[in-house]
Design a binder for these strands. Structure first.
Length: 222
DNA sequence: AACCAGGAGAGAG
DNA sequence: CTCTCTCATGGT
């Protein structure tokens, strides 16, 4: 398997992404919720608003958990879906505040932590995995819409979230830092390329460099 | 002025 | 299981 070559090509073509842009693990968690169907630029503004209100101090979820919902709504209005996101932020903060620290939460077995994250309102597969990888440094590969389109283009068939995740995790060394940068590069590839359709025939890198035969990939059946 | 952004949840078929 | 609708502001 030479899936690692795809990472090398992307890393050679684009600047280092340096994901996740955040100062603390709890900022990663909040940002993961705020970035739903929203440009990152607006998340940055919302994060500044929250910091001005001293709601993100000391990596402590309790400050956000105790804040009035109206205050949170004002802070995150610029990211859209603001009533929903404010409620989700407050509930998620309250959940993590039950732990002595975020580090204590991430000490759990990965699958157990993932199940707990998925039980929270507003945290689906991508958000849960983003939190595990970028806030907890767990070797979990994050799948998003861009990655699913890239899979369809490179491997020639549609993948479910779980299928795509298994594919990446089975064909790469279990390295959280690699997973972080690879996912970010796949997003960059998607942004520069076709947005809504599967990646088009013209690759932004060299011709056919991302094709399965060029990469030596074996397409998994079922 | 339509179209989309670093999704998730609820409901229908 | 796979659609489809909703949530909503900000930038091309």
């Amino acid at each position: 398997m030479r899936l690692i070559q795809m990472h090398e090509k992307l890393a050679a073509a684009f600047d280092p992404r340096g994901w996740w842009p955040a100062e603390t693990p709890f900022e990663v968690i909040a940002g993961a919720i705020l970035t739903h169907q929203t440009a990152w630029k607006n998340v940055e503004k919302a994060m500044e608003n929250l910091k001005k209100k001293r709601l993100m101090d000391n990596d402590d979820p309790l400050r956000l958990a105790r804040a009035p919902i109206e205050t949170i709504q004002e802070c995150v209005k610029c990211t859209g879906f603001y009533k929903q996101k404010a409620a989700r932020l407050k509930k998620t903060a309250a959940y993590f505040a039950k732990y002595p620290s975020l580090g204590a939460f991430f000490q759990k077995p990965i699958q157990e932590a993932r199940r707990e994250l998925l039980s929270l309102d507003g945290i689906g597969p991508e958000t849960a995995d983003s939190i595990l990888l970028y806030a907890g440094n767990k070797p979990v590969f994050v799948i998003d819409a861009y990655t699913l389109r890239a899979c369809e283009r490179v491997l020639g068939k549609k993948f479910s979230y779980h299928e795509a995740q298994k594919f990446f995790e089975k064909n790469l060394p279990r390295d959280a830092e690699l997973f972080k940068e690879f996912h970010a590069l796949l997003v960059e590839l998607g942004k520069r390329h076709c947005r809504t359709k599967p990646l088009c025939a013209s690759c932004p890198l060299e011709k056919d460099c991302l094709h399965s035969s060029t990469l030596g990939l074996v397409v998994p059946r079922q």
